[in-house]
């Protein structure tokens, strides 16, 4: 019984334009700025376009170094975070634990309270033991902060695997370790990949810990972007922004079935 109505169509077009302006609009500016040589008000687009800044970012020492540093930090963080949360998640999913309530509270606390005081005190502690201004200081902070959300993603993955599968294998005489590596682990791989990508993206975009702990010697890509944006170097800031946004957007589209709110409550920052 659908009737064509010009009013309904107009309304829909207006709503779509409004949503696009509000949601995509903020991102259009950075794309334009990244290609702008000259852009003066009131021109809606830059007067002159250039690829110079994209070229600079990949050729120039400082920006490229910061990107390489960010990727290195993120990759090591993923490895450490996975190595810690894989056994812990299996423990939470399969074992009856002593002081379980306290353990759960501890591993949930970082989501429930502001992180900033912890990061600045971590920076001060690291300052005394030589981890400030050091890549490993940032990696340790990122490992701690990402541990919490990778743990809950992987715990959920393990819980989704039926215990009966493991029990059947054990009844046939396989050891617990063998059951884990041949049955549980392969079934958990998609969840582990999702968790790893979460951690990677979070670490790549993290500013607060990287800013306080990296200072004064090293700058990750977000910290350099902040410096550039504050110094009104809009082009360089925008190029770094786009490089950091593209993987996030791709992931958002690809990850649909892992999009459960409680997993990602640690993201942002």
């Amino acid at each position: 019984m659908k009737r064509f109505s010009i009013w309904k169509l107009t309304l829909k077009v207006v709503v779509i334009i409004l949503i696009l302006t509000l949601m995509v609009g903020p991102l259009v500016g950075i794309v334009l700025w990244s290609f702008a040589r000259r852009w003066y008000w009131p021109s809606p687009i830059p007067q002159e376009f250039t690829l110079r800044f994209w070229h600079d970012v990949f050729a120039q020492g400082r920006v490229l170094d910061s990107l390489i540093l960010s990727v290195t930090v993120a990759l090591i963080t993923v490895a450490l975070s996975l190595a810690l949360s894989l056994p812990a998640a299996y423990g939470f999913a399969r074992y009856k634990l002593p002081i379980e309530r306290i353990l759960l509270i501890l591993f949930l606390m970082p989501q429930a309270f502001p992180q900033l005081p912890v990061f600045i005190n971590l920076a001060s502690i690291f300052g005394r033991i030589g981890l400030k201004g050091n890549m490993w200081g940032i990696i340790l902070a990122h490992t701690m902060a990402s541990l919490v959300f990778s743990l809950w993603i992987i715990t959920a993955t393990f819980k989704a695997i039926p215990v009966e599968l493991e029990q059947a294998a054990q009844n046939l005489g396989a050891s617990r370790l063998k059951v884990f590596w041949t049955i549980t682990f392969p079934l958990a791989v998609p969840g582990l990949i999702a968790g790893s990508i979460f951690v990677f993206l979070w670490s790549m975009g993290e500013f607060t810990a990287a800013f306080f702990i990296g200072a004064p010697f090293i700058q990750t890509a977000p910290v350099l972007m902040y410096t550039a944006s504050m110094g009104y170097n809009m082009q360089i800031a925008s190029v770094i922004s786009i490089i950091l946004i593209i993987p996030s957007l791709l992931f958002m589209i690809l990850i649909e079935r892992y999009l459960k709110a409680e997993y990602i409550s640690g993201l942002g920052g």
């Binding site: 949601m23 500013f207 999009l259």
Partner: peptide, 23 residues
Amino acid sequence: LDYMYRLPLFIPFLIVGHAMRIF
């Protein structure tokens, strides 16, 4: 709408800040 509302989900807050400054 489903894709549009989720757009900012994984964008680092700092980048959002920079985008909003321009916007």
